[in-house]
Each structure stands twice: as C-alpha cells, then as structure tokens.
Amino acid sequence: MITVSDVSKVYPTRHGSVLVLDGVNFDVKPGEKVAFLGRNGAGKSTLVRLISGAEAPTSGTIRREMTVSWPLAFGGAFQSALTGLDNMRFICRLYGLDWKERVAYVEEFSELGAYLKEPVRSYSAGMRARLAFAVSMVVEFDCFLIDEIIAVGDARFHEKCRIELFEKRADRALIIVSHDAPYIRDHCSRVGVLNKGRLTMFDDIDEGYVFYKSIQHV
C-alpha cells in the first residue's frame, strides 16, 4: 500500500514560488494499476518523484508499505559518463543484489549488445528506455513507477514490456504517466487527472478521460 496524504510541493522560481501540487490525496493498493493524466507541466513527473522518495514533499506525508521502483523516466537514474553495464552494477550494489547473475537477463532484454559497454550518454532515448526497464526488472519491486518511458520504444519493446509487466508481474502495482488513451484503458483500473495542482481520481477510465479532455480546451 502507498498512501499519499495532503501532499503539496512548492518550487522556488525567479518569479516567486510555484505551487505544483496542492493537497494531493490518494492510495495505491498492492497489484493496482493507476494512471496519471495531465497537461505538460501539470506536475505528473513531480508526483512520481515524490512517490519514489527521490524528492521530499513540501508538506504532507507519503507512506510506502511496499518496495517502490525509482521513476522509470526519460532522464535520471543513470550516470551518463558511465557505461550501461557500470550503471547496472551501481544499481545492483545500491539495492544489495549480486549483479553477476543478472547480467544475462539485462543483456537479453535490453538488446544493447556491445553498447552495454559504451557510456550511457551515447545511447538513444529508446536504448535508455530498454536499459532502464531491464535493470528495474532485475531489482524486482512491488510497485513500478513508469513515467512515459514505454512510449519511446518500438512495437517489439512494447510487446516485451507487456509480457514482463502485465503477465509475469501481474501481481505488482503500477503507476503510469501516459497520454496514450488506449494503453491506459487496456491496462489501468483507475486514473488520476492533475489540473492546476489539484488531483481528481476516477474509478472509471473513460470518465477520467472526458474530464481530461474538458480541461484541455479551457
């Protein structure tokens, strides 16, 4: 269970402080798949970082009673001067795992081949996504945080992710940030829409989507 209570986040900027999240409340039960929608800059990625614990909320509390992955996002998680393999070793050491027995899986899933021994800064967005996914799968979390990263992959990568996430790990919780309506409809049971710092949760995906569309035209 993840419980987010009254969470607000303020960022200082040159023109005063900006309230990105304003009194956000929700919870995620084990095995639940929850999606987050919102316009660019609505605070989706911020919310995901707060859930992961990488950043602290300005006020409010977040209780994590299951293991939560780092945000699987476009940036972050990897040190770009290091190779993919060194980054994988780093993450395994960080989570107290033996990397040797996990290299084969990462090699196979990421399909990076010789690039695994090249610096991550030379990778394309798709290659980074494959590496991030492969490494998070070997660490094995109870809840995976996915911030739009599946979107960059090709069909083959999508299919692999689907098998790993929704078949082999159907019992895990997922928190997904995506703009892809069919994807959310297929995979999630609840959706939260972020608008002006406020979060509205919907148990019906279509209802949430209609609301999301309506705020886009204002």
Partner: peptide, 11 residues
C-alpha cells in the same frame, strides 16, 4: 554530476 543518481531514493 550525481543528480541523476538521486533518482534512487537511497542516494
């Protein structure tokens, strides 16, 4: 240079 590693909660 280590900001990206701070994506991991423990760091």
């Amino acid at each position: 240079p280590n900001l990206s590693l701070m994506y991991h909660r423990y760091v």
